[in-house]
Simulated scan of single mutants.
Amino acid sequence: MKIKNSLKALVKRHRDNRVVRRRGRLYVINKTNRRFKARQG
């Protein structure tokens, strides 16, 4: 999992990427291609 200041560029890398808020943190998750994972905060 990558930890980044900005998730905007990572979301655009794959069409199935989603930004999700969990416990005050922002996550990028992808159900179809699980290698696209990132966290902010």
Rank of each mutant, 00 (worst) to 15 (best):
K8W: 05
K8G: 10
K8N: 13
K8T: 14
K8E: 15
A9S: 14
A9G: 15
A9T: 13
A9R: 15
A9F: 13
L10H: 15
L10S: 08
L10I: 12
L10G: 09
L10D: 12
L10N: 12
V11G: 02
V11A: 05
V11W: 02
V11C: 10
V11E: 14
K12T: 15
K12A: 15
K12W: 12
K12I: 09
R13F: 04
R13K: 14
R13Y: 10
R13H: 07
H14E: 09
H14C: 03
H14T: 04
H14N: 12
H14R: 09
H14G: 03
R15N: 11
R15W: 10
R15T: 06
R15I: 07
R15A: 11
R15P: 15
R15L: 12
D16W: 01
D16A: 06
D16M: 05
N17C: 14
N17A: 09
N17L: 06
N17W: 04
N17Y: 10
R18A: 06
V19L: 13
V20P: 05
V20Q: 11
V20W: 09
V20G: 05
R21M: 07
R21H: 11
R21C: 09
R21N: 10
R21Q: 09
R21L: 09
R22V: 10
R22G: 01
R22T: 07
R22M: 07
R23Y: 10
G24K: 12
R25K: 15
R25Q: 14
R25D: 13
R25P: 02
L26E: 09
L26P: 01
L26Y: 05
L26V: 02
Y27L: 09
Y27A: 00
Y27V: 01
Y27H: 05
Y27N: 00
V28I: 14
V28P: 03
V28H: 01
V28S: 00
I29V: 15
I29M: 06
I29W: 01
N30K: 02
N30V: 01
K31I: 04
K31Q: 04
K31G: 02
K31P: 03
K31F: 03
K31A: 06
T32D: 08
T32R: 11
T32N: 11
T32L: 07
T32A: 04
T32Q: 08
N33F: 00
N33E: 03
N33C: 01
R34Y: 01
R34T: 11
R34V: 07
R34P: 05
R34W: 03
R34Q: 08
R34H: 03
R35P: 00
R35A: 03
R35I: 03
F36S: 01
F36R: 01
F36C: 02
F36L: 05
F36I: 02
F36K: 00
K37F: 09
K37Q: 09
K37C: 09
K37S: 11
K37D: 00
K37Y: 11
A38W: 00
A38N: 03
A38D: 02
R39T: 11
R39L: 09
R39C: 07
R39P: 03
